[in-house]
């Protein structure tokens, strides 16, 4: 049971921690106050409890695939917000107060939506063990280990980003955000395939022999770049399309700002 709770908690915490630390590092260099993160986490946890306690109702929607559809919707929302954020961030380098507030609002939405999606699964898992004292220690221990690894990785990424050279941070953060966002797009595609809303196909490749998804490094890569051992063509297209779309839009807005500044 210990390993199970480590994996479940780690997978969800790691992804949220990674998004939070990249956004926190970006806030820091843009001179945005960090208090939005408290709101985002609070809203996210509240949302995930509400979502988790209504999973039974949601599951029955859309002929029994409501869960997939709503989760895909959440993932797509996170992806879209991340794209808007990255583009807006690139377009407004010298942020005034109004810009900062808009960026703060976007980050709050991204993080709280991500936590709603990630956190609800932890709550569902834990709710199954309420009253079962025999499993208390292993589950609590596993949860702590998983959360500990996830949060530590997030903290290290945050300080790693901040300790880089000032002009590299926005580029690296954008690439990191792009890969996290692409992971969201890929996940959304997978969920819609599972719901039979998108065509199901044979997997393009299978790398589970070298790097199983349920290993710690597999989980780390899943959170970081949305690693999937055997993706289908639709999924891979969503992933790489999402990745390139974000980077392309950011590059475009950067270019336009530059030419604006020159002209």
């Amino acid at each position: 049971m210990l390993l199970t709770s480590v994996i479940i908690v780690l997978r969800e915490v790691l992804e949220a921690a990674l998004i939070i630390s990249v956004l926190l590092a970006l806030s820091r260099i843009a001179g945005i106050r960090l208090n939005w993160v408290r709101w985002a986490i609070g809203l996210g946890v509240l949302g995930s409890v509400i979502y988790a306690s209504n999973t039974a109702i949601v599951s029955d929607w859309f002929d029994g695939v409501g869960q997939e559809v709503i989760n895909a919707l959440l993932q797509i929302s996170v992806y879209v917000c991340l794209v808007i954020f990255a583009v807006y961030f690139a377009a407004t380098h010298k942020a005034d107060d109004a810009n900062k507030q808009r960026l703060q609002a976007l980050m709050t939405v991204v993080v709280s939506l991500a936590i709603v999606r990630e956190g609800s699964e932890i709550f569902l898992y834990l709710s199954g063990f309420v009253g079962d004292m025999t499993q208390f220690t292993p589950i609590l221990t596993g949860g702590l280990v998983g959360a500990g690894i996830g949060i530590s990785a997030g903290a290290l990424v945050y300080y790693l980003l901040l300790n880089l050279k000032r002009d590299i941070i926005p580029y690296l953060s954008t690439v990191l955000l792009a890969s996290v966002a692409a992971g969201m797009a890929g996940q959304a595609a997978l969920l819609l395939i599972q719901a039979d809303w998108l065509p199901s196909q044979q997997a393009l490749w299978d790398s589970s022999q070298w790097l199983p998804e349920d290993s710690v490094s597999g989980q780390l890569l899943y959170a970081l770049i949305g690693y999937e051992a055997s993706p289908t063509p639709v999924q891979a297209a969503a992933y790489f399309g999402g990745f390139l779309l974000l980077l392309g839009l950011v590059a475009l807005s950067r270019y336009r700002r530059k030419s604006h500044a020159d002209g």
Partner: peptide, 24 residues
């Protein structure tokens, strides 16, 4: 609740207690 999961099938879905779930 239980979560039906398979890395080989690429499927993952929560099935709430005393309910059913559809997976393609």
């Amino acid at each position: 609740a239980e979560e039906f999961e398979s890395y080989e099938l690429n499927r993952e879905k929560v099935v709430m207690g005393n309910r059913k779930a559809v997976i393609f």
